[in-house]
Design a protein around this nucleic acid. Structure first.
Length: 410
RNA sequence: GUGACUGUAGCUCAGUUGGUUAGAGCCCCGGAUUGUGAUUCCGGCUGUCGUGGGUUCGAGUCCCAUCAGUCACCCCA
């Protein structure tokens, strides 16, 4: 039936059959995070526009539009389009750098971007992610990737590829950018028009180009690894050998450069093996300079974010059907008081109940109880009859105490 | 934001070159049969054919606009 109203473009409802899967997946992510001793952080949905414009590079990218408005006190406000900047803001503002020098955080939250919707790309979408502050050691990078891999494996998402790279320090990156610019300028004749444009704005992005004509040029482009210092190379090798130890398969992707401009050092991405355009499940990397840039003390950090919707699309995880303990059947309003008293007692004893307020006949209630996966049927009229639906055992009880005994002895 | 395609009951879909009162299966509701609440059978509910215009004697079918979705680009989780 057509509703008078329609959901906003790029948003979606999660109806009861789907909330079961969502809750199950959220539980798994909460549990894994907590197993690794990461603690949950929740930040507001709205932030000042400047938080994103000044730190994430959002003003440079037109298509990555934020939902923004000016409120009544002339404050420029944005619905948060990503989580790292808000988490870093809260980390600094909450003084976590003092109280918790090695601070590990995780979140599951809704984000908002005004993009053209597609499957796996909504305007309000949900991300799970972690941020680890305070360690510049490569072990921290290994742990973060390990958590991402553990989550996907537990969620039963198997056809994935982990891409890893090291993009070095900001200086290395600037140097590399110059090198690329030079290289692509030499080959400008064969570049696609899109890439020609990017040569001016952001030459590194040419490496991500999907244009056919760019591919052969990209294949022979200089790679950043050649510019890394010895210690950076050593770190990268250590990361890879630890991944080997953990039996986490990876691909070195020399041209993997994360979209947001605060990254340095290790970057990684986990994609599905399909050719879909929205195939990035998870992406992250190190951002050792962001905390300081945002006014906090110089603090190394690394994290990742994973798209909940995309993980749910890819997951083979099966959730069990809902079930209830007691189906309460009564066809006479005169017994209402008795029903509610019994129901209250059952609830207080931690049973799940279903009370048929539609007053179907007993035969249909029986059908209904089976369909709802009920364990017992409770028929309340002048007496109380309890029936074990699987075994067909049936007994009349005189009071709640007797009912409880029957249930406990099953 | 650009381009292409799609839009018929809650769901999956039929609907012939435009032609009477728009169909099926599943689901849901009820009944019958039944040594089960399984099977089988019967009946019922739900649609201004995404929305708004236009062409036509006549539009679910053709045209335009609009909204939404899907795919690719783009972007990224």
């Amino acid at each position: 039936m057509k509703s008078k109203y329609q959901k906003i473009k790029g948003t979606f409802d999660i109806l009861p059959t789907d909330t079961r899967l969502w809750k199950e997946m959220e539980n798994i992510l909460h549990n894994i995070s907590q197993q690794f001793s990461y603690e949950e952080i929740r930040t507001p949905s709205i932030e000042s526009i400047d938080l994103f414009k000044q730190n994430v590079g959002y003003e440079t990218d037109v298509s990555k539009e934020m939902f923004t408005w000016e409120d009544l006190s002339n404050q420029q406000i944005a619905l948060k389009p990503e989580m790292t900047a808000p988490v870093v803001r809260a980390y600094i503002e909450g003084g976590l750098y003092r109280s918790n020098p090695l601070c590990r955080l995780y979140y599951i939250d809704s984000l908002f971007r005004r993009e053209k919707p597609q499957k796996g790309r909504q305007r309000q979408f949900n991300q799970f992610g972690i941020e680890a502050f305070g360690s510049s050691n490569i072990e921290q990078d290994v742990e973060v990737i390990m958590i991402a891999a553990t989550c996907l494996k537990t969620l039963n998402i198997n056809e994935t590829t982990l891409h890893v790279n090291n993009i070095g320090s900001p200086e290395t990156r600037t140097q590399y950018e110059g090198l690329l610019k030079k290289y692509f300028t030499q080959n400008i004749g064969v570049l696609s028009s899109l890439s020609k444009k990017r040569l001016e704005t952001n030459p590194i992005r040419i490496l991500d180009s999907k244009e056919q004509e760019d591919q052969s040029i990209i294949k022979n482009a200089p790679i950043i690894k050649e510019l890394l210092t010895d210690s950076e190379k050593e770190d990268f090798n250590m990361l890879l050998s630890n991944l080997d130890t953990l039996n986490i398969k990876y691909e070195e992707s020399p041209y993997l450069v994360r979209g947001l401009d605060y990254y340095n050092g290790t970057t990684f991405e986990i994609t599905t093996r399909s050719n879909k355009s929205q195939n990035a499940l998870c992406g992250g990397g190190r951002y050792d300079f962001l905390v300081e840039q945002m006014g906090g003390p110089s603090t190394p950090a690394i994290g990742f974010a994973a798209g909940m919707e995309r993980m749910i699309i890819e997951s083979q995880y099966q959730v069990e059907k809902n079930s209830i303990d007691i189906y309460i059947s009564s066809n006479d309003l005169n017994h209402s008081r008795k029903c509610f008293t019994v129901m209250q007692n059952l609830i207080n004893n931690n049973y799940t109940v279903f009370f048929d307020t539609n007053k179907k006949n007993v035969k249909n209630q029986m059908k209904d109880a089976t369909k709802r996966n009920a364990s017992y049927l409770l028929i309340i009229d002048k007496k109380i009859t309890v029936k074990n639906i699987k075994s067909n055992d049936e007994i009349a009880v005189s009071d709640f105490h007797e009912l409880l005994n029957f249930l406990k002895n099953q």
